[in-house]
Design a protein around this nucleic acid. Sequence first.
DNA 1: ATATAAAATGATAATAGTTATCAATTTCAA
DNA 2: TTGAAATTGATAACTATTATCATTTTATAT
Lengths: 132, 132
Amino acid sequence: MKQLKNSKQRTIILEALRLNCNHPTADEIYKMIHNEHPNISLATVYRNLNLLTELGIIKKIPIASSSDRFDATMTEHYHVHCRKCGSVQDFFYEDFSASKAAIEAITDYEVIHQDLVFTGICPQCKNETKEQ
Amino acid sequence: MKQLKNSKQRTIILEALRLNCNHPTADEIYKMIHNEHPNISLATVYRNLNLLTELGIIKKIPIASSSDRFDATMTEHYHVHCRKCGSVQDFFYEDFSASKAAIEAITDYEVIHQDLVFTGICPQCKNETKEQ
DNA sequence: ATATAAAATGATAATAGTTATCAATTTCAA
DNA sequence: TTGAAATTGATAACTATTATCATTTTATAT
């Protein structure tokens, strides 16, 4: 296992993600920090987001047909993804909390985390569809 | 809405997916059919998989850090994804069945489908780790 | 059966997202 | 303070997916 060393860039990237609760993509984080830190490269953003994900400090949210998104909120929660506008929103539903042990029993996997992504149409997009 | 017309290619692609329960990627389906149908192009495979997904005939499974996978099993079920070997396996857990209505109530989304992907380490990879 | 319009295709170019490369810089334990 | 390992920025390379477009196929109306 590789011995981690501190890096200012990693700290800045993690703080930027923690300030943005809209599940930004790597590129969105790059743009967030670029004004104040124009010398941080996109590759460094990707590198650190992946590293932080491997370390379990943040989560990567896979979304069908679009970029991966990242999430620094590690308290248990789940996501709904709007198929129309692409937004991702958090929600919590207590019934899922116990499921980890159940899934491990059913599948014999060691479950690291639960990416429960519900795909649908968000309230705003539902209204727009009606109005047309 | 576009008026669909039959195509032999679409039938072949859908049948290939229905024969492969390992949640293949678009490229894997292309390779499955390529020997017998060398004139079906990769673009046609992508086009039809996306079209079938939009029609709700198959599902696209988004997996972090890898290609989208496809699934023709439309009876309700969920997935576990091995972070080491990348495999995706089905499972069913009845407690999730009622969740759609609950999530709609919580989020006010119109939920189209549930991509419940649990990430972890599969039984085989767990054993390999121990043996090292 | 034929003509026609719409849909679909194959081949390939283009794009987007992400990762790899590598010389230079930074970190940190000895 | 030194040296090895980790990290970086810049950019090339790569992979997955989508767009383009001339051609072919499909299905409908005649």
